[in-house]
């Protein structure tokens, strides 16, 4: 028993914000942003939520597959920006789709969330408990961006991507590997809520100690860059090794869309043609857990990926977390 991707979908908010507009918010310029990131614009949510984007992406994937909502028995959403602590985004997607058959599960693994979710769903399908899963990466990062920090606010965008993964006798997912290093968690953070219950306040010797830290993204760009280059390299090598294929036979690598410079560095260090890496961060920015399925859907709709072609998906991000998957492309609707 294997699992394979049979359809893709994506959704982004209507509003596009270009670099020039950001230059009106913080001290930056189009040239500065393009040189350091490769990004020109990103979609930003105004009325959309993580759940509404996730549900819209899921509907497109279901439509593409010719499936109805109740054909799905697992809904997974990878996100770091859920609309609520509870209900989960996946439960909200279920309600929006009118599905009653699925188990709904959110997964937090930073920008690696989609690859982590793929590993979980693939394992559940191979174990025989699940027949057909929706795996969604969805974010509204604009709500956790510090819009006064010019080093980070230019990097992120909102959006969602989804795939339908189903049980198959033919292999689709050939390998899926994941790793974590919690000891380096501080290099990329979005703090949660402080505990300000009456007893915590009483126990705090310094009132500032319990002042809620703002829930905004902070990161050490240099540290993340170095981590990312190594993480992508490991993920590609390890997933190709387990899949039993040579990296040179991969048709397209879809990396997490964090920064063009990271991808350039990996391509040059590993001796892989830059064009093998599919990037759309120029137009979408870094959408964290949504970036890989968003890029995969765009690629799938823009050109016909040859049936049987090998694709590699590579995620890396907060936690720290990272991972990669090699899939053999199946016929998609």
């Amino acid at each position: 028993m294997f699992s394979r991707i049979v359809a893709t979908g994506s959704s982004v908010p209507e509003l596009e914000v270009g670099n020039d507009e950001l230059a009106g918010l913080v001290d930056t310029s189009d040239e500065w942003i393009v040189t350091r990131t490769g990004m020109s614009r990103r979609h930003i949510a105004t009325t959309d939520t993580t759940s509404s984007l996730a549900a819209a992406a899921a509907r497109k994937a279901l439509d593409a597959a010719g499936l109805s909502a109740d054909d799905i028995d697992l809904i997974m959403v990878a996100t770091v920006t859920p609309d609520n602590f509870t209900p989960t985004v996946s439960c909200q997607v279920q309600a929006a789709l009118g599905n009653t058959a699925a188990t709904c599960l959110d997964l937090w693994a930073g920008c690696s969330g989609f690859v982590y979710s793929l590993r979980v769903a693939d394992s559940m399908i191979r174990a025989g408990g699940v027949h057909r899963a929706l795996i969604i990466g969805a974010e509204t990062l604009s709500r956790v961006v510090d819009w006064t920090d010019r080093n980070t606010c230019v990097l992120f965008g909102d959006g969602a991507g989804a795939v339908v993964l189903e049980a198959s006798d033919e292999p689709g997912v050939l390998a899926c590997v994941t790793r974590s290093d919690g000891s380096r968690g501080n290099v990329l953070r979005i703090p949660g809520l402080a505990n300000s219950n009456p007893w915590a306040i009483k126990a705090a010797s310094d009132a500032d100690a319990i002042a809620p830290p703002p829930s905004v993204i902070s990161m050490d760009g240099q540290e993340v860059f170095r981590f990312a280059v190594g993480a992508i390299q490991w993920s590609l090598e390890e997933s190709a090794r387990i899949a039993g294929i040579d990296i040179s036979s991969i048709y397209r690598i879809i990396p997490h869309q964090a920064n063009n410079r990271i991808i350039d560095a990996v391509a040059s260090r590993m001796g892989i043609e830059r064009d093998v890496f599919y990037t759309n961060l120029q137009r979408f920015g870094n959408t964290s857990a949504a970036s890989i399925p968003l890029a995969l859907d765009e690629l799938n709709r823009a050109e016909s990926i040859p049936v049987g072609a090998y694709l590699a998906l590579v995620g890396f991000g907060g936690g720290l977390t990272w991972g990669g998957s090699v899939i053999r492309w199946a016929q998609t609707a």
């Binding site: 040189t35 350091r36 760009g221 240099q222 540290e223 860059f225 280059v229 920064n259 410079r261 560095a265």
Partner: peptide, 27 residues
């Protein structure tokens, strides 16, 4: 050089000379 170019250069130096240069040392 910008900050990312510094990291990339240091990674190339580490590969070439087999040394380890910390994040603080890069800064």
């Amino acid at each position: 050089a910008d900050s990312l170019a510094m990291v990339e250069m240091v990674m190339a130096i580490e590969d070439k000379f087999g040394v380890r240069i910390s994040q603080q040392e890069i800064k």
